[in-house]
Amino acid sequence: MSSDGPTPAERFLRGILPENPVLRQVLGICPTLAVTNTMEGAVTMTGAVLFVLTCANVLVSLIRPLLKPHLRILVFTLTIATFVTIADRLLAAFLYDMSRQLGPYIPLIIVNCIIIARCEICASKQPVRTALMDALGQSLGFGLALCALASVREILGFGTWFGKWLGWRVLPVGLSERVWAPWTVMILPPGAFIALALLLGAVNWATARARARKEA
């Protein structure tokens, strides 16, 4: 079984754009909407998902001969929960503010569909190297989507980019309210839905265009 299907390098590349977990598979929408009002949140969430997904994929791939079909989801969830706990505690220890800001969304990675889907689709059937590359590609794709969304939301909503960590301002300090003001709606949940919908629309449009060009 491991001989057919895409090669590890192909799986890595596919995760980034053609099978992007958020933009093409529309999985893991809950953290995508919840943590993307700042770039810091998006990057931290990406880091946590990268860690959990890579470790879970590798471990599941290693133990795949032992998996029993009727217990496999349970084993996936326990494996993921172990690494999520590690990530959660690490964040609380070294990035306490970020950990508080992300609140329940780090523990919620346990039930993130992206990770369970990768374990089920790839890791439980493929050798370690393939599973590792798949996890890296999917995590990068997830990070790409989150950063795209967070850039739009933070720039429009706060007028900054990495405002808390690096202090980069897009709008100059002391800009008059008469000239321009940040859009409060973009840091609120409605802004997340609107921005994600527009982003998905743009990606669908670009995909359709690329396909039409290839066929023509």
């Binding site: 309210e177 008469r178 003001a181 859009w183 409060t184 709606v185 973009m186 609120l188 409605p190």
Partner: peptide, 21 residues
């Protein structure tokens, strides 16, 4: 509604009371 949620200061009650211009 979008403008009101985006710019509460510019469209809220204060905008009617104190037009700074």
């Amino acid at each position: 509604a979008f403008a009101m949620i985006s710019f509460p200061a510019a469209l809220g009650a204060s905008a009617y009371v104190s037009p700074s211009l």
